[in-house]
């Protein structure tokens, strides 16, 4: 294994981790499996494409071809994706949480509603924007560095650094802010949190918006490597869900560990000559099944820690 492979694996892992953490936090605090995470991903990508396309002339006119222009462009792409993601989170809150959170069968019904949202949004995007993929402006620019005889593309490095930064910020928010404390209280014991006066309704909104924004960041970062399309969210959703489960739902560190494991597994399987790219999914799921047989609650989830 050489550095190039490690970079490739980390690149995959950081995108997966962004998705998986969102799903994991949401499940343990709000008790919702968010199937609309893929739709959030795709919508954020389109929002970033639309806004950056609209603002491109203005930025070019103001800053010309300076470094400032690319910095502005990068922040426009990121900001629009994050805002769109947060907005999607708010929509999910309004449709899949608020009307039914105190009604029977809440967890199954919220799963179904988010699933319906996912299907509906993906098809609406396809219907409105057409089947063509869209390219986002390359915020990290084109090119690569040579490091220890290995080529590292800008977008790979940018994705790894950006994702790690966002994750650290999120964890810091959870750790040090008042809201974060409330969310963690809900993650540990929802009933206990309710007894100590933490409102579920009031906490669910920021959590949903935060996880939506994480999906937005993932969309903006992944779109540096591939393109924005209506079905772009499917793979990240499936990967995010499986990794969140593999990590043990509700365990943030478990999710990160699982993302890194799967990232490396995919990278390594991809270069083994007789396996190759076509057996990547095969190997991933075989690995997950194996882990689940030996550790029924995933990697991070100790039996009592995870939510029942």
């Amino acid at each position: 294994m050489d550095l190039g492979l490690i970079i490739y694996a980390l690149n995959l892992a950081s995108i997966y981790a962004l998705m998986a953490i969102g799903i994991s936090i949401l499940w343990s605090s709000v008790g919702m499996i968010n199937m609309a995470h893929g739709a959030t991903f795709a919508t954020s990508g389109y929002a970033a494409w639309f806004v950056s396309g609209a603002l491109k002339p203005a930025i070019a006119a103001t800053f010309g071809k300076t470094v400032m222009a690319s910095v502005m462009m990068a922040s426009v792409v990121m900001l629009s994706a994050v805002l769109a993601g947060a907005f999607c989170g708010a929509v999910i809150y309004a449709l899949a949480f608020l009307p039914i959170h105190d009604k029977p069968n809440y967890s199954v019904r919220s799963l179904i509603i988010t699933l319906a949202l996912n299907i509906g949004v993906v098809q609406s995007l396809l219907w409105y924007f057409g089947p063509r993929n869209r390219g986002l402006p390359k915020v990290f620019g084109f090119g690569r560095w040579e490091l220890l005889d290995t080529k590292i593309r800008y977008d790979q490095a940018g994705t790894i650094v950006g994702a790690s930064l966002v994750m650290i910020l999120t964890l810091a928010w959870l750790r040090y802010s008042r809201r974060g404390l409330e969310v963690r209280a809900m993650m540990q014991n929802a009933e206990g949190a309710a007894y100590s006066g933490i409102s579920r309704q009031a906490t669910a909104l920021p959590v949903l918006m935060l996880t939506g924004a994480l999906a937005g960041v993932a969309a903006a970062l992944l779109s540096q490597t591939i393109f924005v399309s209506p079905t772009a969210g499917v793979i990240p959703l499936v990967k995010g869900l499986t990794i969140a489960l593999l990590g043990g739902l509700g365990s943030v560190s478990g999710a990160v560990a699982a993302a890194i494991l799967i990232g490396f597994l995919e990278a390594i399987v991809g270069v083994i000559p007789f396996l190759g790219q076509r057996y990547v999914m095969f190997a991933t799921f075989s690995f997950i099944i194996l882990v689940l047989i030996f550790r029924p609650r995933g990697i991070g989830g100790l039996l009592d820690n995870t939510r029942e």
Binding site: R109, I113, A116, G120, S124
Partner: peptide, 15 residues
């Protein structure tokens, strides 16, 4: 549109 219709029915029914 028909897939969107199915999704909408699913959404309304479940809510």
């Amino acid at each position: 549109l028909r897939i969107i219709l199915v999704a909408a029915i699913m959404l309304v029914v479940t809510i």
